[in-house]
Design a protein around this nucleic acid. Structure first.
Lengths: 255, 255
DNA sequence: CATTGTGAATACGTTCACAGCG
DNA sequence: CGCTGTGAACGTATTCACAATG
């Protein structure tokens, strides 16, 4: 078992850069909105603004898909929607299982944007017999004993893990053994999966910590800004390493 | 208003690379687990395995923080926990508000990993008068009329948006106007924020689409692999891509 | 002639490989 | 002697800037 690698590293494939792939859904969302407003064409500049990127990046991204634009004009909205959908594999149906129907699992089951775009919640699975048989978002919760059967009966290849961290690895292994090859992990754990299985993680706590880092830095800069009377043009002093008197002993807090 | 930039681009600062910052929480989590098991020291190799990265990357990351290891031995667990916590700004308390107490907001409010690590849910805010006054995770839900007052009374600088996409931008603007400078956005929208405000987004739909892309590619590779006579080892039935001879016109689906 | 598509330049991130050191 | 810390090499991503073109 390889340790939680996320993507095939070497595989040259047909080579759409990973960073580009990660932005395609963003473009698609912006394009879908335009499509709904019946906008026929859009320039790279406009679309980029709607997607929150810059236009050079967007054009480069699209260049990996092929030449779908018209010089002097822009891109045909419907056509691009289709091309990106196809590239992302959204023209087919993806049955998905959610394992762990606590607050978060239930929230995801109810999430509307799930059902759209070719993703279909094929089953909700929970280990708690209390949950079994209940309906969440109109879908019955099934017991985890059924996991393997559900996966194979429905041809599920994408699994979502919303269990407590303690059982996530174990659930992951069962999913993979049953045939799942893509996992979206909401549990705060590093999952180990065999080669060929993709894992993506969503981790609230990590996101907050990253924000805290930048927040702290901002505070440092402000403090520095006060120091000079004349507004220093670019006197960025940055939270210089001195963290007060001296870093003596920790004050560790629990996980 | 700048369009949803996520981080200061130019700012040279003291330069811990963004990629490194994003991994620090991962190291911290692994270290905390070791600390709980009273492991005194750990090598870069071991810690890297626990965090799901390779050891060269980990050592390089730590080198940006300073030289906290001992050659021939490894890293002192407690000391590293402290140094990373400090670097991330987790030695201080971060009051956080969650706006939009639907399924997801409630899930986050209940999320345990939230309260640990210096983050404290200072308030839950919802626009629905029905919700107001109810308790979620032991915290009373307050009406969004109070938003500005709550932010300033509690010195909140981090806001979490779990509203429907339609109101996310508007909520974002109120948060920013009230003094929030870091936003974690769960709504599937691009947020526009002024310079100096950080936005991070968590987007289920995007993650699934990225997985679908790779999943689709795997299917394609298999098909190719079949061409050779030898029985493909893991003949996973994969919902094969070909949606007909050629993609003629779209079949656009709603957002 | 506005806008795409893309080489070339730059910036950022990862990995290698080994000198330095406890 | 084992493991860290880090320059140098490599690879990936972003941005620039402009020639190509409908």
């Amino acid at each position: 078992m390889a340790t939680g690698r996320t993507h095939r590293p070497a595989t040259r494939s047909r080579g759409i850069p990973e960073a580009t792939v990660a932005r395609l859904p963003l473009y698609l969302r912006a394009l879908t909105a335009l499509s709904e407003r019946s906008v026929p064409t859009v320039s790279s500049e406009e679309l980029a603004a709607a997607a929150g990127v810059n236009s050079a990046k967007l054009r480069k991204d699209f260049s990996y898909l092929g030449s779908y634009g018209t010089r002097g004009v822009g891109y045909d909205v419907e056509y691009l929607v289709y091309q990106i959908s196809r590239e992302l594999g959204l023209t087919q149906d993806w049955p998905v299982v959610i394992v762990g129907i606590g607050n978060l699992g239930a929230a995801l089951a109810n999430y509307g944007g799930f059902a759209s775009r070719g993703f279909r919640v094929a089953a909700l699975i929970d280990a708690d017999p209390e949950m079994t048989g209940r309906q969440v978002a109109g879908i019955p919760v099934q017991h985890s004993d059924e996991l393997e059967k559900i996966i194979s009966d429905n041809g599920v290849s994408i699994g979502v893990i919303t269990t407590p961290p303690g059982v996530a690895q174990q659930v992951c292994e069962r999913l993979v053994a049953a045939g799942v090859t893509s996992i979206l992990n909401f549990a705060p754990t590093v999952l180990s999966v065999p080669d060929g299985v993709d894992v993506r993680k969503v981790d609230l706590s990590i996101e907050l910590q990253i924000l805290a880092f930048h927040e702290q830095r901002k505070a440092g800069e402000e403090a520095a800004a006060q120091e000079s009377a004349v507004p220093a043009p670019a006197a960025r002093r940055v939270n210089t390493t001195d963290q007060g008197p001296d870093g003596d002993v920790p004050a560790v807090m629990p996980a």
